[in-house]
């Protein structure tokens, strides 16, 4: 450029209305096309990565677990089992009553442990304590009680189902 112009060529171009429209149109077109490509690549990649989560969601919709032979569980002990995909516990109390809870701590998802000698359900991660009869959160950080399931003791098996 021999002499610097009073207005920059860019500013001059942008000031003509037709040019602004064309520029905007091209920018929009390229942007839209780019979004299409991103979507066409992103969708399969998302579906690919989401497959295990979707499969787990399908297993997670179960409403009942059948525990063969669990009716023989000695009083004062617990049986860990999978309800859908998540850990759960069946407790046979010394007074003869049966309860089942989701064994996932409502604080930060650690698996809890039944401690009959302390008469509590305890989470080792952050010291959460639940009542072993009701699942109520009684001490420590847990904000909610454990998920409670219905228990039906039958001959040779125990049925655990969602409320």
């Amino acid at each position: 450029m021999p002499n610097a112009p009073a207005t920059s060529p860019l500013a001059e171009q942008a000031s003509t209305p037709t040019d602004t429209t064309r520029r905007t149109f091209i920018a929009l077109g390229v942007g839209a096309l780019g979004a299409c490509y991103a979507g066409l690549i992103g969708y399969p990649v998302y579906q690919y990565l989401a497959t295990p989560a979707r499969k787990a969601a399908a297993t997670g919709t179960v409403t009942q677990a059948v525990l063969d032979g669990a009716d023989q569980l000695p009083a004062g002990s617990a049986l860990m089992f999978k309800f859908g995909t998540a850990p759960a516990m069946l407790i046979h109390h010394t007074d003869g009553s049966w309860v089942a809870f989701g064994a996932v701590c409502t604080h930060l998802a650690c698996t809890v442990n039944y401690e009959p000698e302390q008469s509590r359900i305890y989470c080792a991660c952050h010291g959460g304590v639940y009542d072993p009869k009701t699942g109520a959160n009684v001490a420590g950080p847990p904000p909610k009680p454990l998920t409670r399931y219905y228990v039906e003791v039958q001959d040779g098996r125990v049925l655990v189902s969602k409320a």
Binding site: P44, V45, Q47, Y48, A50, T51, R54
Partner: peptide, 9 residues
């Protein structure tokens, strides 16, 4: 065969 779009990747 099992994972969605796995064949494509």
């Amino acid at each position: 065969y099992d994972i969605r779009f796995g064949w494509l990747i």
